[in-house]
Design a binder for these strands. Structure first.
Lengths: 186, 186
DNA sequence: GTCTATAGGGGGATAGAC
DNA sequence: GTCTATCCCCCTATAGAC
């Protein structure tokens, strides 16, 4: 795997999560990396290829993380906590999560990118739903109604929270974290 | 006030909330309205002018709505309900709210647009915070912690919820509504 | 107010040399 | 693999006729 290719993807992801998919250009990447536009096209013939590859990597990272927590025997609180910490870190870096940054652009994305975005969203909600369900069964979490609804609400709050706090320059993301945690305590 | 001007703003808002600010063009508007590009520039010299005007109108609408509810003597539940119904309607139209659609693009916006986006976000959170505080004082709502944190969480969930449900093609926005309401019941 | 015409720039993308 | 050179399109924006 080429180092240049990895740098392009890393920077591309950062740009999407900062400026948005439709606002960043190959120029942004080539200038920063000290290469030419054409070099990027060598690795990613189209912008859609780049976007799709970035999403695939994100999905893979997410699955590795959840698998890892599972095999380490993390309990439900610890797993939820680790997940939310990803958003705390994003907030600190003033970046959105990839789902929240591509979400508003979904109707402008190519088919393959759209498909991966859908897949990623679905995987996160499914994982979170199962986590909440199993935590409730053990009386670790308490909440009313279907787990999938709670999962969607929590995920929505995290995605939206990053956007809102970046607009208002809010430095306090921890309160969102606490609000979610408090709400699930038995 | 010109009819053409109003149509441009209406369509512009719709485009922002559907495709996003950086993805829509003057062409999209002129084609749809059967006019030429230059006509739009007559009313809005720059794209930033248009974006800023759309936001100002949205702020005005929001203030009119909250003032109206106040003078009609709506109780806190009714006011919250009316606010959330805006999001239920957006979801039905497969559109985002203006804050959620401009949020990810905030770093690419001109100064005046950014200022109005900030203003709008602040007004919504302030209003919601006061509503929650006053509702809790009357024992209409129940929640732990500072009202501003609860307000931010609710607003974040609504903003993010529209994005998530549009990605996953989820037709069930009501569950988010119920999840928020359930959470506030005494 | 709305038009035609056009400027000026930036975008994604490709061909072919090295 | 990376470069130079170039294409073509779409973008925002402006000047000036009607």
């Amino acid at each position: 795997m080429s180092v240049t290719r990895e740098k392009i993807m890393e920077l591309g992801e950062s740009l999407i999560r900062t400026k948005g998919y439709n606002a960043f250009s190959y120029q942004d990447i080539s200038t920063e990396l000290g290469i030419k536009n054409a070099a990027i096209h060598y690795y990613f013939p189209t912008k859609e290829n780049l976007g799709t590859s970035i999403l695939k990597t994100n999905i893979q990272r997410f699955e590795e993380m959840t698998d890892n927590m599972q095999s380490r025997g993390f309990d439900e609180w610890k797993q939820l906590d680790s997940f939310i910490k990803i958003y705390v870190k994003s907030h600190r870096e003033q970046k959105l999560c990839i789902v929240g940054s591509l979400g508003p652009d979904v109707y402008t994305l190519g088919e393959s990118t759209k498909a991966e975005l859908f897949k990623m969203t679905e995987k996160i909600i499914t994982w979170l739903t199962n986590l909440l369900d199993s935590g409730r069964a053990k009386n670790i979490f308490a909440f009313e109604g279907e787990a999938v609804n709670k999962a969607t609400t929590i995920f929505s709050a995290l995605v939206g929270g990053l956007q809102i706090s970046r607009i208002s320059g809010n430095t306090d993301f921890k309160s969102l974290y606490m609000s979610i945690a408090e709400d699930l305590k038995p």
